[in-house]
Structure formats: structure tokens, C-alpha cells
Write a protein that binds this DNA or RNA. Structure first.
Lengths: 159, 159
DNA sequence: ATTTTATTTAGATTTAATCTAATTTATTTT
DNA sequence: AAAATAAATTAGATTAAATCTAAATAAAAT
């Protein structure tokens, strides 16, 4: 039984609306989806139980909090078998907020957030020190031009 | 007047707790921060007014919704002056959920989410068709090993 | 020291979340 | 196709939280 079959347009519409603003009351979601608020509750509990909706988080403007630099890091390992241990070490560095195993030249692809260039320098130093990391390439984010949630479609168009 | 000076550890602690679970009732946040729930409200309104907290969104397991492939794209432009118009065109492609202006070799660095390899193929085709794009490099995400919110620190340690 | 200003709080009111039982809708069986 | 069963949805009641207001406290300025 395919999980995706258990998901209908009501579910997707609810996810879509809450993705725009996770604090929207279920009563309001209910009106927009043309069901009762009870149904919204039931559907959301189902989505949470299925692990589809994992949590709700804030969308924060980090630069306004003094975290002015975010950057992507392409990390080259000495041996790709070191992946797991390097990831464990990167978890110890709190500025690393994402890390991925990707196809392409990099062994690990990561995202970091820092306060300023000095902070960035320190973080890069700490990352270079991690056993098994050969070298890194840094892509500093100068502008975020698109940042939006996924949009769902069915045969009839946007949900 | 520096905005960051208006933010104290109470604010950061509130942001930190709500970042873990944006649906946590303010009454519960209040207990953990040792202030009244009214104060949590006031602080959150301040943070929203200052544009620091922009919104709350869901953390969704896209693979369970049938979106099995996410990928980063390094995009090379014919001329870097085409940045703005290319971004406008990328906004029309709903699978593009992030796009950045970054240092490094790429003119644009983007993230896309697709259902399967067929869908990825279509999306890549559509992106290649965008006027001004020279070529792209695709980094397909095979595993997300770290995904967490930023952690705040002051002189005394983690907030 | 006194006034002014800002922040926090307790308590009241409004609003929403959650639960339950009943109804409706859909599915299966005969 | 009709009856029986199962599943989903709803209205309404209860519980809990958000929001507002006015008073109290604390901080800053004169």
C-alpha cells in the first residue's frame, strides 16, 4: 500500500496553507478548504503520524540577528569512506546547519551561518581541522533571490 | 541605533524554543523562559514587527509525498548582468524553491525539488531553456545528514 | 528624589484546540 | 441493487490558549 495514495487534495491544500503560515488557526484553514475544523485536526494528526509533517519552524531573518554571512561549503574528503565520521564531527560545529551527501565533485555539501567574516574564518578553520577533510570550497551567499515552499499540482492545476 | 542591541537573551531563548516547535503554546514557552505568557506575546510581536521572525512554516518530509529528488544546481550565465531577468524566469518554474547569488564559479546557485528522475529531466530541460543560462551543474541530494536550526550563544554559553 | 517612560504581570475576555458522540458518506457483502 | 459494515466528517461541548486591558513594577531621565 502506497502512502502517497492515502494523501488527497484536502491534505495537500492543508499542508500548502499551513506552509505559508503554520500559525493559521485550523478554523480558518477549514473555511478555505471547505471542511470542518475537526477534519483539519484529523488530517493533520494523520499527516504527523505518517511522518509527513515533521514539525513547524520559524522563518528567521538571521542577518537582523547579527548573523550576516551564510555560505555553502563543498567539502572534499581524503577518502569517501570517512563520510560518517566526518558528519559526526561536523555535528559538533554548531554553525553547520545542513549537510548533504550529493552526487558531483564534493563528498559533502554543507551550509553554515556565521556572524561576520571573523566568525566565518574561525568556523572554516574548525572545519578544516576535522580529521579526514582534505579541502573545502566556499560559496558565500550574497543575496537570497528565491525562498519559497514547494507548490503542489494535480491534473486540474495548482492546489 | 543597532537593532541587535534591542534583542536580549529572553528574545533569543523564545526564538530558539519556537524554532524547535513553532506550535508550542506561549504559556509553555513562558514557563521555560521564566516570564509571563504576556511577555512572550509582547516579545514575539516585537520580533515580528522588526522583521526578525518572518513567518512559521512546516517541516515536511517531501519524499513521503512523492517528491523523491532534491538537487542543488550551479547555474552559469552567458553574461552575469542577466542575473535579474534569469531570476524572474526561474520564479516561473515552481520546482525552484531557492536561488542565491553567491561567490564562486556559479552565477546562480539554486535548489529544486522533483518527484522522480523523469520530473527532474523535465525541470532541467525547462531551466536550460531559460534565456541567458549557459549551462548547469547538478548536485543530486542522496542523503540529508544534518538539518537543524541555528543555535545561539552568549558569553555564558548556549542560550 | 521625582517624573517620565518602558516593561512586565495578573486577570478578564475572546478565540481556538480538542474531544465525543452522532450523522453522513463510502465501501463491501450478499 | 439493497443491506450491512466501515470510514470519514460534522456539530456541539469542553478544555486550553491567545489576546487584550489596566495595574504594578522597574528603568531611565531630569
Amino acid at each position: 500500500m502506497d502512502k502517497i495514495l492515502d494523501i488527497d487534495n484536502v491534505d495537500l491544500k492543508i499542508i500548502s496553507l499551513l506552509n505559508d503560515d503554520a500559525k493559521t488557526p485550523y478554523t480558518e484553514i477549514a473555511k478555505k478548504v471547505f471542511v470542518s475544523s475537526g477534519t483539519v485536526h484529523v488530517r493533520m494528526r494523520k499527516l504527523e503520524d505518517m511522518g509527513i509533517v515533521k514539525s513547524a519552524t520559524l522563518n528567521i531573518d538571521f542577518s537582523k540577528l547579527g548573523y550576516d554571512i551564510s555560505a555553502f561549503l563543498g567539502i572534499y574528503l581524503e577518502k569517501s569512506s570517512l563520510y560518517d565520521t566526518v558528519i559526526e564531527n561536523l555535528k559538533q560545529i554548531s554553525e553547520v546547519i545542513n549537510a548533504y551527501y550529493t552526487t558531483g565533485n564534493y563528498s559533502i555539501f554543507a551550509k553554515i551561518i556565521c556572524k561576520d567574516t571573523n566568525h566565518l574564518r574561525t568556523v572554516l578553520d574548525n572545519i578544516q581541522k576535522v580529521e579526514g577533510i582534505d579541502r573545502t570550497e566556499t560559496l558565500i551567499v550574497l543575496e537570497e533571490s528565491i525562498n519559497r515552499p514547494i507548490q503542489f499540482f494535480d491534473k486540474t492545476g495548482k492546489i
